[in-house]
Design a protein around this nucleic acid. Structure first.
Lengths: 200, 200
DNA sequence: GATTCGATGTTGTCACGTCAATATATTGTT
DNA sequence: AACAATATATTGACGTGACAACATCGAATC
């Protein structure tokens, strides 16, 4: 049966609290079996029952929670140790991966707004970490490259990033890491489908 | 061998582009075998080689990317359809799960700043979605409850959230979903260890 | 009983990402 | 040749979360 998969861990940060929560493996409302996997039944004060998202069993909830905490902690560390933000770091990786990338290319790849990239690259240039190339034939876009100093900083932050990732993946087998990336990649593909459906 | 796990998908949004990228399964720098799993070797313009984070193989990169896109898309939809933000929605879930929760409780559970929660709950009250209870014995904290209208909105958004999640988990078996949540939960536990180590 | 301390919530400030508007140059159209 | 359409980057306005400072109240200490 499925229920054994859903042992609830009680940790220090409260997401997995079990007070007043009973899990519903039977049907109470008109949710179907699939949706029921992610619901909890809660007992209202006046005895009325209600169903809502389970934090600990919904991948989307866990995903956003994990990513937020990870980004926040990383941003803090990078700011303290290297004086750069989370986007700056991703941009260093971007320009290492694709020297000569443009603003739009970077925005699409990193997945944040081109306005933010524009400001980010201006910061990097001001700090002497990146330099611009000649204008392209289209007269508007241009490539960007890391300077020697930019490459040096990239190397330093990379060490830190790998150290952090090593801690975060502690206890994961290589196979589990491969599963993790596979699951996340498929999630991203599905996200594409979702946004197309919504915006189209 | 591992390499078969790391087939690179080429999608529309460019994260998995393979131009100028060759994967390094051998050692070139002084990174150890574990770190090498997450690195790509890129060819610089002047022929010099450099290593950097692989977007498509690093769980942390994929995680933040997926979560950012998910949150953004969800926030947009919720704002358009229901006039609430992403945090408002989480707060609706919170107050359904734990009627009478306080600001600090909610902040810890949802994982965002108590200041943001304070403003969020003020918004909800102003819109008639939540009401406050009496002050607790400590004279500062108080519980918060959803109004009938708040519960109604919660139900509507829940349908939408489940619909979206169904699309996002399309193609996942039940076992894979359980694996996904398990991997994410362990990631969160490791995050606890990391932040304790850093801030302590 | 006065003072200190801890817990909780609120508010101000800052950083940053999103969206929309704008600027500018190229390409295509008539 | 003039004009419209397109692509790209920049800039301003806005919303929101993080962090810190502050306010407030009960409890503990002396």
């Amino acid at each position: 049966m499925l229920s054994r998969q859903y042992i609830v861990a009680v940790t220090t940060w409260g997401l997995f609290d079990t007070h007043t929560i009973r899990y519903t493996f039977g049907m109470t409302d008109d949710f179907d079996a699939f949706d029921t996997l992610f619901l909890v039944e809660v007992e209202d004060d006046d005895g009325a029952g209600a169903q809502t998202l389970s934090f600990s069993r919904s991948p989307t909830v866990l995903l956003t929670f994990a990513a937020n905490r990870f980004t926040r902690a990383a941003a803090k560390t990078y700011a303290q140790k290297f004086g750069i933000g989370a986007v700056d770091w991703r941009m260093l990786v971007m320009l290492t991966r694709k020297p000569g990338a443009t603003v739009t290319e970077s925005a699409n790849t990193i997945g944040i707004d081109k306005g933010a990239i524009s400001r980010c690259i201006a910061r990097l240039e001001k700090r002497g970490l990146a330099t611009k190339g000649e204008l392209h034939a289209n007269g508007r876009s241009r490539g960007w490259w890391l300077t020697a100093e930019g490459r040096k900083l990239h190397g330093e932050v990379l060490r830190e990033a790998l150290d952090r990732q090593r801690i975060l993946l502690d206890g994961y087998s290589e196979e589990e890491i491969a599963q993790f990336t596979d699951l996340l990649r498929r999630f991203l593909v599905n996200l594409d489908a979702l946004t197309e459906k919504t915006s189209g």
